[in-house]
Design a protein around this nucleic acid. Structure first.
Lengths: 250, 250
DNA sequence: CAAATCACTTGAACAGCGTACGAGCATCGT
DNA sequence: ACGATGCTCGTACGCTGTTCAAGTGATTTG
């Protein structure tokens, strides 16, 4: 993959003219790429495999996409089309953020390779922008002012990313090893406890987990953190709000 | 890079016996790898280049490390040795978390490639474990009980990761393009505003930024979110705490 | 209707990658 | 002195992303 000019992203340049029924199409290519990524992860996607899946030569793809990087940018944004954008008018800002956060999390867990792309490509695709734009609306509806609008949005999104990237990594690893998350959980528990042996506080924590279901634990962790973040935002909001949402917030 | 068994990490297997003064050493190799990563980023690190830098053949490295993955795990953990572990006894839990968070952030910004590794490898290295273990101590000192201890720690760390990964990505991109962050900021501003043209709320936000220094804005964003997270944790803490830290916190 | 242009496909080729392997060398324990 | 052990290295394999020139067939132009 070639080094690219700072912001040379597929979203910053026009698409070529296209004939009416060409054999391939950008959509078709992106869909095929996503299928491979979902099924076998990031490492499994090569241009040759993609070509093969499309019944075309590997290099044909380069007519529609100038880079593998561009292809991944397209795939990434395509996935962002799946995220929910709940209306704060009907539910209030807090449920809106909550729903969006959960939706974002489950989207990443459905497509764990996405986690490896966040923070590599600028997210300038229409779906990502639409999502951010929507969250800005939610924050404004909540009554955040000026920069606090961006701060609030960025905080929530950052939290979800940070929390979910680790989970997605485990999923990816399980996938690469041909196991399910469940099996991995079982094996990893003992190993973790063993590794943490020299760290008294960690060991104590591992002992405390006992038979707790790791899956439930992850969800509980996410919820705890999200509630904390939203509580914190609520405090900031009260300080500077100039109106719209009722104080209660829900 | 080969697919690896679920948790086959370098930390889960013993080190080979080693002769007293061998030409190379694991430490030396890891240091050299970090130098390359810091100077030119993740893509620039190849086993051949690493060998060349060490004045050795590419394949010599494989005596000390069985994988490129393992090498990256070692480098990652080595960097985690740089993080601060402030004592909650002297400063209280909130400043302790705050210092740790800032320290973690600046560590990642000093070594942007770290961001691309988080969420790819399990962090079982001694330095990472020591850090986590310390944070557990901070949370316990704050008075969190049972699972809330882990929840609190995970929340803070996740927030820092999520927030910093995006920043690190920009740094990496700037580095790859041979620019500084400052130059990139200037160019990216206009492009972003242009791209956001079709999204009214985003456009409004970009207009509001005006001449604001992006660097300062990033710091302000981080601080805002961190304060929010800690405020949220404070609320959770009050609910279940069984003592140690004074109610005031700070 | 012929010619030229355009959209698209393709195979071959290149440089680079991670890594397996076996031959060789130097030092160590006996 | 000799075998074992720690370590280095060159070669080679199969894979990667990407370039490029050649080719095909439909569409537009003169």
């Amino acid at each position: 993959m070639a080094a690219r000019s700072p912001i040379a992203s597929i979203w910053t340049r026009p698409q070529k003219p296209q004939r009416d029924q060409a054999g391939l199409s950008r959509d078709q290519i992106v869909r095929a790429a996503i299928e491979i990524l979902d099924a076998e992860g990031r490492d499994a996607l090569s241009m040759r495999r993609l070509g093969a899946r499309l019944g075309a030569a590997a290099t044909s793809v380069y007519w529609y996409v100038s880079n593998k990087d561009e292809l991944l940018e397209l795939a990434l944004d395509e996935i962002f089309g799946e995220v929910e954008r709940p209306d704060p008018e009907t539910s209030g800002w807090r449920p809106a953020f909550t729903i969006a956060a959960h939706s974002l999390r489950s989207l990443i867990l459905r497509h764990p390779w996405v986690a490896q792309l966040i923070g590599v490509y600028p997210m300038y695709g229409p779906n990502a922008l639409r999502f951010t734009d929507h969250l800005v609306g939610v924050a404004q509806h909540a009554g955040f002012q000026d920069f606090d609008v961006d701060f609030a949005v960025t905080t929530v999104v950052a939290y979800v990313y940070g929390m979910t990237i680790g989970e997605a990594a485990w999923l990816s690893n399980a996938q690469r090893a041909g196991t399910t998350m469940k099996e991995l959980d079982e094996r990893v528990w003992d190993v973790s406890a063993e590794i943490a042996r020299d760290y008294p506080r960690l060991s104590e924590r591992y002992r405390a987990y006992g038979e707790t279901d790791p899956q439930r634990l992850r969800v509980a962790t996410f919820d705890f953190g999200l509630v904390s973040v939203l509580d914190g935002l609520e405090l900031r909001r009260r300080a500077t709000r100039r109106d719209p949402d009722p104080p209660a917030g829900t």
